[in-house]
Design a protein around this nucleic acid. Structure first.
Lengths: 110, 110
DNA sequence: TTGACATGATACCAAAAGGTATTATTTATA
DNA sequence: TATAAATAATACCTTTTGGTATCATGTCAA
């Protein structure tokens, strides 16, 4: 499970790969179709797709001589869960801000 | 803003750095205190802390000859927001699963 | 069946990452 | 004021990363 989250975090660390995921969120695409969206070579795009697949963020299905790349949104969930741990800090921060605002209002009333 | 999210994603891609964040979520720590938690050198830990600072995930405050490293939970928010885009897919997937279960139950009733 | 097409597989390269060791520099403190 | 402690700054090394170019393989279609 810890390996799983690492694969996903690693896959997400590159801006091109995050961009690929956004493209695949619109529709499934072959390697060539994905490559058409970028100015780098097909080979480079294929490497990115491999890393995305290793991170379980996409799945690849052979279809004749083409390979269909398909978004696997659930693959991002381990990352979301890891990040979710920090929600409590955001909540606390929100609380602090609300209290600060309330304090400020009380001071202005004096 | 796009640079901002890249810095955070980059910082989060390393398991040691994620581990450092977890330690800092318990309490503020000097570089030396952080380094005590790991088997790598202080210098290596300091590099990680610099990258975390560049990604706005921590802040560093000089205090005499020590430097206090402090978690900045809000720095993770750009990442959470990026990831949040995929929530809709999870919801759709949940819907599909519910429909599949319902379909399965109908078939068993026949 | 013979090309064209989509992808796979290598080999290679430069730069970035993650690490160490060593040498300053600043700052408490005996 | 020495001296030890905490950190800063370099220089250096190895592996990984992101990219290219080239060649091989499988597959559709005239």
């Amino acid at each position: 499970m810890s390996m799983e989250v690492q694969g996903a975090f690693r896959a997400l660390s590159d801006p091109t790969r995050r961009d690929i995921l956004l493209h695949l969120s619109a529709r499934d695409m072959t390697i060539g179709e994905v490559a058409d969206q970028f100015s780098i070579t097909r080979a480079a795009v294929k490497k990115h797709l491999t890393i995305l697949e290793e991170g379980r963020l996409i799945s690849v299905k052979a279809h004749g001589r083409e390979r269909i790349n398909h978004l696997e949104p659930l693959g991002i969930k381990p990352v979301a869960d890891w990040i979710g741990y920090f929600n409590r800090f955001w909540d606390e921060r929100l609380l602090e801000m609300q209290q600060a605002v309330a304090q400020h209002e009380r001071e202005n009333d004096e």
